[in-house]
């Protein structure tokens, strides 16, 4: 696969320069997948500008990069790549690994089945993907690319996450309203549990005791007891919220939820399970994903209808900037770079 980083000098962007004195514990870059441009926008958080793109395919509109995940060391960003033909197997169905230091594609894992989202085990040895077209969750050996196992989920599987202890994989399925629980070590299905209506994304709490599942049509977040794999609470965000992507603050105390229906980010206090903030003003249109910076000072949203990334300052819980990305900005993730 050819590699290119194109300078986006012609792109206009609302830029917010980092306030002087802001210290980053570790450098990072922000990556945004652009579903209809078949590329990934690379963003420098210091200048809050897009510094280039990484081409995933030369066939935008046919090839479709969507969900992303980051390796435990932050040095590799994985992207699930599929196409717009749910019932047709194409060569593009793959997991693409981007080396953050070099901003280059480092590896491609053939996936099949229109992978929509991807997750990495805490030890970096397993890659898991939700195959939307074939209603399956699939695991790969990250070193060899060999398929470990494939499991049936509900129809239209989407979200996938690995527990912090590496033991379990949760895969959501949109039409069955379920989460399939896979034992990642024994490679077998443990349970299926019903969550909210049309579940999309799933994340584990930092300590692994809970998981959170967003339900787009239900407008809810299901709180799962991860030791029992059971829903113990449901947080209502409202029928119109249409929550999709989520991310936790580094300390795990805040859950950021992208609400595509209301173009808002809901910030949930995980100690009380109450909505602490709703960030709407100046938000891009239809935020579908959110990623929190390593120091928790910022959150970034991927906005599919404004083709942009919104920057949230978490000290004021307000949007302080917009960065132009590509067409159909779908997901956003943070990759770590050496601070110097």
């Amino acid at each position: 696969m050819t590699i290119a980083i194109a300078r986006q000098l012609a792109r206009t962007a609302a830029v917010v320069v980092l306030a002087a004195g802001t210290a980053q514990a570790q450098g990072y870059r922000v990556y945004a997948s652009n579903e209809y441009d078949a590329n990934v926008t690379v963003i420098d958080p210091d200048t809050q500008t897009a510094t280039g793109t990484i081409k995933i395919s030369g066939r935008p509109g046919d090839v479709r990069p969507r969900g992303m995940a980051v390796s435990p060391d932050g040095k590799t960003v994985y992207i699930s790549v599929s196409d717009f033909l749910p019932k047709t197997e194409t060569p593009e169905d793959a997991i693409v690994a981007i080396d953050v230091d070099r901003n280059e594609v480092a590896h491609t894992y053939r996936a099949g089945g229109n992978p929509e989202r991807v997750a990495i085990s805490p030890d970096g040895k397993q890659i898991w993907a939700a195959l939307e077209a074939t209603a399956q969750g699939v695991g790969f050996d990250a070193a060899t690319g060999a398929e470990l196992a494939k499991f049936p989920t509900g129809v239209e599987s989407e979200g996938v996450v690995v527990s912090p202890d590496g033991r379990f994989v949760y895969v959501t399925a949109e039409t069955s309203h379920t989460v399939t629980v896979i034992d990642a070590q024994k490679l077998k299905v443990v349970a299926h549990l019903l969550v909210g209506n049309r579940p999309r994304d799933v994340v584990f709490a930092r300590d692994g005791t809970r998981a959170y599942v967003s339900a787009e049509i239900g407008g809810t977040i299901s709180v799962v007891d991860a030791s029992k794999h059971k829903v113990v609470k449901t947080i209502n965000l409202g029928l119109d919220s249409r929550p999709v992507g989520m991310d936790l603050s580094p300390d795990g105390k805040l859950l950021y939820v992208a609400g595509g229906g209301t173009s808002a980010v809901y910030v949930i206090d995980t100690t009380t399970d109450k909505v602490a903030h709703v960030i709407k003003e100046k938000m891009g249109r239809r935020p579908w994903a959110v990623a929190v910076s390593p120091d928790g000072s910022r959150a970034y949203t991927a906005n599919g209808l404004s083709d942009s990334v919104s920057v949230i300052d978490t000290s004021c819980m307000c949007v302080t900037g917009q960065i132009a990305a590509g067409r159909g900005t779908h997901s956003v993730r943070v990759g770590l770079v050496d601070a110097n």
């Binding site: 709180v223 829903v231 449901t234 947080i235 409202g238 009380t272 399970d273 109450k274 909505v275």
Partner: peptide
């Protein structure tokens, strides 16, 4: 009901 609720009869 936007705060934490007991599990609704979704299960």
């Amino acid at each position: 009901a936007g705060s934490a609720t007991a599990a609704l009869p979704l299960t």
